[in-house]
Simulated scan of single mutants.
Amino acid sequence: MFQPRADRYSQITVRMNRYSVPVRLIGRQVRVVLHASYLVVYDGRAEVARHPRLATRGETLLELDHYLEALIRKPGALPGATALEQARAAGKFTPVHDAWWSAVRQAHGDAAGTRALIEVLLLHRSMAHDHIVAGIHAALSAGALTAEAVAIEARKASQTEPVPDAPRPAPTPVTSLILRRLANLPPDTRPIPSVAAYDQLLRHRPAAPPAQ
């Protein structure tokens, strides 16, 4: 076990290699547990980072997610960031991310567009990567250049994606207390209500706006 301190670059050194930790831990001492192929970083008892172990000494492994809180304050640092290049190489930052980022910067400017991208990247903390990528693609196709639009489309993707080999529950009879009570009520002899007035309202409602 190792107990390195996170430096001002939000990195720790373990056996001559450097690994990133969340920026909130700058200046703090953390605990590192080494395993055969990976290492886990703890702040107290909470796991705060997990990295593959680097085989060659003198290398650096950075996780883009660890820097998002700092980058949203200084968005100009993102384009040339080593963490971004490593995320691209690992397939975490996809061409779809890049296409949406380019479009939103063109629409809203570099700083505002990059902050919007970082808000999208923060969604990865609570949603599956594939759903976020699908959400970005759908939002880009619709010209919806906001993080909120990406989140909505990502949720749609998560709800419509089929679950492979999901067992279907066997049908069960509905035997609720409400249905048993309704079965004992006397028959309703009132005439069926008319909806003619509502039909007239529907015929006169304004035309829907064209789809975006």
Rank of each mutant, 00 (worst) to 15 (best):
I132N: 01
P169E: 10
A46D: 13
A154G: 00
S141Q: 11
R31S: 14
A197T: 15
T94P: 04
M127S: 09
H66R: 04
A55R: 14
R45F: 07
P210W: 10
T114L: 06
A207G: 05
E47F: 11
V104W: 14
G58F: 01
H137W: 02
M127Q: 05
T146C: 03
V21E: 11
G44I: 07
D98T: 00
M1P: 13
A70W: 13
E119Q: 15
H97V: 00
G58Q: 01
W101I: 00
V104F: 08
R50P: 08
V120Q: 00
S176F: 01
P4S: 11
Y67C: 03
G76F: 15
A196E: 12
L202Q: 12
K156H: 11
D7Q: 12
R105N: 05
A208E: 14
A151F: 03
T56N: 10
L185N: 07
I12N: 12
G143K: 04
P75Y: 04
A111V: 15
L202F: 13
V33Y: 04
E59S: 15
R180M: 05
R24E: 12
E161F: 10
A87R: 00
A116V: 01
A107S: 12
I152M: 10
V21G: 11
I152Q: 11
R155E: 02
D65I: 12
P22Q: 06
L54N: 02
A6I: 09
A46V: 15
R8E: 08
V30I: 07
R190Q: 14
A197C: 15
L39D: 03
E69G: 07
P79Q: 06
V133H: 00
I192A: 14
A134H: 02
P162N: 03
R181T: 12
A128R: 14
S176M: 02
V163E: 11
S20W: 11
M127F: 12
K92L: 15
H131S: 08
Y38I: 02
A83R: 03
T175M: 08
S10T: 09
V150F: 05
N17I: 05
A183V: 05
V133I: 03
D130Y: 08
R88V: 06
I132E: 01
S158P: 05
R50T: 07
A207I: 13
I178F: 15
W100K: 00
E47W: 06
D98A: 00
R50V: 12
S102R: 00
V174R: 15
H131Y: 10
T56C: 06
S141Y: 01
A147D: 01
P193G: 08
A46Y: 07
E69Y: 06
L68M: 08
H97N: 02
A111D: 10
R73V: 14
P164R: 07
S37C: 12
P162R: 05
L121V: 00
A81P: 01
L84T: 01
P95H: 05
I178W: 15
